[in-house]
Nucleic acid binder design. Sequence first.
DNA 1: GGTCATAATGAATTCGAATGCAAAAGTCAC
DNA 2: GTGACTTTTGCATTCGAATTCATTATGACC
Lengths: 350, 350
Amino acid sequence: MPKPQTNKKTTATGMEKGRRPTSYDVARIAGVSQSAVSRCFAPNASIAPAKRALILKVASEIGYRPNALAQALISKRTNIVALIISARTNLYYPEVLAELGARLSDRDIRVLLFTLSAESDVDGVLDQIWRHSVDGVISAARMSPAQIALFAEHRVPLVLYNRVGSGAPSVRCDSVAGERDLVDRLLAAGHTRFAILSGPADNVVAEERRLAALSALAAAGIGEVPEERGDFSYASGHQALIRLYERCGTIDTVIAVSDHMAIGAIDAARITLGLAVPDDLSVVGFDGAEPARWGSYDVTTVRQPVRRMTEAAVAMLMERIEDPTALSEQRLFTGELLRGSSARLADSDL
Amino acid sequence: MPKPQTNKKTTATGMEKGRRPTSYDVARIAGVSQSAVSRCFAPNASIAPAKRALILKVASEIGYRPNALAQALISKRTNIVALIISARTNLYYPEVLAELGARLSDRDIRVLLFTLSAESDVDGVLDQIWRHSVDGVISAARMSPAQIALFAEHRVPLVLYNRVGSGAPSVRCDSVAGERDLVDRLLAAGHTRFAILSGPADNVVAEERRLAALSALAAAGIGEVPEERGDFSYASGHQALIRLYERCGTIDTVIAVSDHMAIGAIDAARITLGLAVPDDLSVVGFDGAEPARWGSYDVTTVRQPVRRMTEAAVAMLMERIEDPTALSEQRLFTGELLRGSSARLADSDL
DNA sequence: GGTCATAATGAATTCGAATGCAAAAGTCAC
DNA sequence: GTGACTTTTGCATTCGAATTCATTATGACC
């Protein structure tokens, strides 16, 4: 029985079938050395224009493409950036993810995506990241100081997105200014009995917004603010508002730390509790997620400048990839107040 | 001036500082060959248990991790799968993306993400995919027969998600059954004047759902159904409904090809046009996106079994990665009708 | 204790491109 | 035409792990 030889049979050009062409194949056919082929694809390599043209012609004829793995192995540059996103931040992350991807793609960088499910451990993800020698990492997930320290040890640049930690460079939206802005306007409109729908106690962003709101209220002499926690989701906002009303039904304002929770709260108020929003109850959120602007909700909120933030995060990461000694920097962006109709606001100078 | 030698200085263990340890480092310290180290990390390699333990101990002491690039280069297996998602499918894709990521991660596969922005060309993405020698691709983006043919040529397994094309294996949700289901129930509830909010004419899924709805209506003797097109987005659903009413204000039912468009339509009907939904107008959608279940909308829709579909897509891809000769297969999943309150339905046997 | 079969081991090679180095070729001035 | 340059070019090596092959250690059994 004759063996099928498809794998070893060579064509007229000398190339084996069924194998993708390598730089050696191009070199052989063009009658040059492999180095010459390699130099054709390097930015400022020294190569004669005529030879270059010939090689590129042969390369395109046989469909040659440099093998990214081999390139990365020798050059220590993968042109891949890892993105770590936690599924709990799920709710407005599609926009962030799409924007980060687009910014990276603009710079000819590929994205290795790690979505943390509730159970999945960050350490496992980091392990994978080290193994794959990515050029850098943007993380929108919670990381411990010890974990952040690993990045320095492995010499992998890291930029945190809406997180802070251990002197790592970060890009954030200013929760303090945003919440103060919201609170100030709510106060100006005559609200007096505030409540907060906060997030998981271990979530930095949620906690930051919660504390910012509390301190803005405290500055106005308002203490003893009832609170319920959620997990950023619609359902948790819904339930939290109901719990809040069971505990104290006299509130007139709810400050939710995310738009999705605000939306859940609005539905709970209107549908379950039969309250008018904003007449009986004002609800404000945070993020500027798309659904917050939908007609049925039209949430008064602070919009994160996602475009600018993602651009900044990518720019910072690239800078640190090019120059690993670049100093850490924290960039804080101011959000834009969106005057929806889920809260009574004073007719201000806006 | 003495050169700084930090890069070449060796430590007591003989390892150079500032370089990540390689299998040779482990081998040298453990007093074995590099092959032995390599075999420790291979599944069924032949290695003495004692030696294995020693090597693993040394490896973990010096923090050795196999270099994924080198492994991939020699073994022709990257354990990376590329995901192609078009930004226009944006709207319910976070769930799909998260699920696909989780299913792949379960199988110890990493995800290289390609998000197509409106302008970005698929060919560029494919080029990157070939260069990176991914093990397989799952695509939820439109691809031409020529592009699909490239996958065969490059021997990269491909599974289409909610798309079809050129005999490539695919996983889809049954639009025909879903739309027929919706239409039948709408008819049973006495609706008579239907309209369709369809999607981009070049989108297969949108077109499939549109045709499915039309043919279900035709089967009941209803022709001449007014239509407006959108792009799957809230805003486009909103605008399309208003255009529809300007053209013919006598409709009593709107069949939208996606939940987001349905939601936009509901808001337009209620807020802009002052109609009661579902009393004046029934609206149904498709997908079972999260917002469709929010209290203010509670869209009557068909839920795609995302969990099962993503699991199937990943399983099919893995099968074809293990066995490239596996035959193409198209799997069609039936969606589940969610009886929301955005449409008057008959009290059926459900 | 001797004979096979089997398991364990290391040396050498391989994957595919980048690059330091030295040789070759081209350029220019005089 | 010669010497002093610069630009091109190819050879050989490198990146780090997997794997083939030949060899040696281990074990089972009579």
